[in-house]
Design a protein around this nucleic acid. Structure first.
Lengths: 154, 154
DNA sequence: ACCTATGGTTGGTGCACACCTACGATCATG
DNA sequence: CATGATCGTAGGTGTGCACCAACCATAGGT
């Protein structure tokens, strides 16, 4: 892992550079935590999506998270194995597999979210509450901007 | 490339998640531009470091950018091939290879930087000037915080 | 002169990630 | 009931990144 460097100075003037570095650090730190439980970010994302949207087919889940359907299968495999989600054949369309969050899965999601929050608080600790709120707002704007403008999709 | 997703909603409350997504998008967009010239981010970073710090040994360069020395060799190989940097054996310590930016390299760096700025401006276009300045400040604080606290180094 | 440490190079490894193809099961249509 | 599309699955590919071990040339201390 890299995670940080001393100072490639003129690059620091590029917000894009800072953004990419800080983002990578955020990802890496949460990723490390998850890795201790042999999990990846996708696992958490799937649990969160199920919690938010409720049970749904793998296809839909994959589309929502913009993950490849075949990869979704593998992620769900892991989650089933741990008992955090359940797979059931859809009664009306038996091709579909409906995925739902189990109580254990809900609990795990809450735990993971708490961990993520801890990491995030540590990461953003140098900011005042105001600055952090402002950052949050700005990120949200930029993020929404990303989605409006798909930019490029293979 | 992924680059964005519609909305894994509860995750959006996590600033760490947004940070990671936006950072990844920033990296990806600059990366794409560089890729059209068969370049990676490291190439640009090396040019920038040489511009900032002046000629120096590969070892030093690698340490500054926190890149593995053996990878630095390869990056410098590419840059030499394009005529953007020059390698010269250090006269006083003939083990060392001093790397310096050529005029062509300076020009290329300026071009790359301009491209990066374009991408960045587009990415952050939803922000007001004030908000962007605030973001810049916040990112800088967080970034510096990262470095004070190496966190974990293999 | 000898020994150890260091700088650079070479040619690898392992991992994560996104992707793809082929397949059986199932559905929806004509 | 034949046809073509869709869902999930299995297994494999390519790419980028960080890392490592082995090597040669050179430096520096004793």
């Amino acid at each position: 892992m890299d995670c940080m460097e001393s100072a490639p100075p003129s690059l620091l003037k590029r917000d894009g550079y800072l953004l990419s570095k800080v983002g990578k650090a955020a990802r890496a730190r949460v990723g490390e935590r998850l890795a201790t439980r042999r999990l990846r970010l996708w696992h958490m994302a799937v649990l969160a999506a199920l919690d938010d949207y409720g049970a749904q087919s793998q296809r839909q889940l994959a589309a929502r998270l913009t993950i490849h359907p075949s990869d979704m299968t593998k992620v769900v495999d892991d989650l089933v194995e741990r008992g955090w989600v359940g797979r059931t054949r859809d009664a009306v369309d038996r091709r579909r597999v409906s995925v739902r969050l189990t109580p254990a899965g809900e609990g795990e999601l809450r735990r993971l979210d708490a961990e993520a929050k801890t990491v995030e608080d540590e990461l953003l600790s140098p900011l005042t509450a105001d600055a952090r709120a402002e950052l949050s707002r700005a990120l949200r704007l930029v993020f929404d901007h990303l989605n409006e403008e798909p930019h490029e999709r293979t």
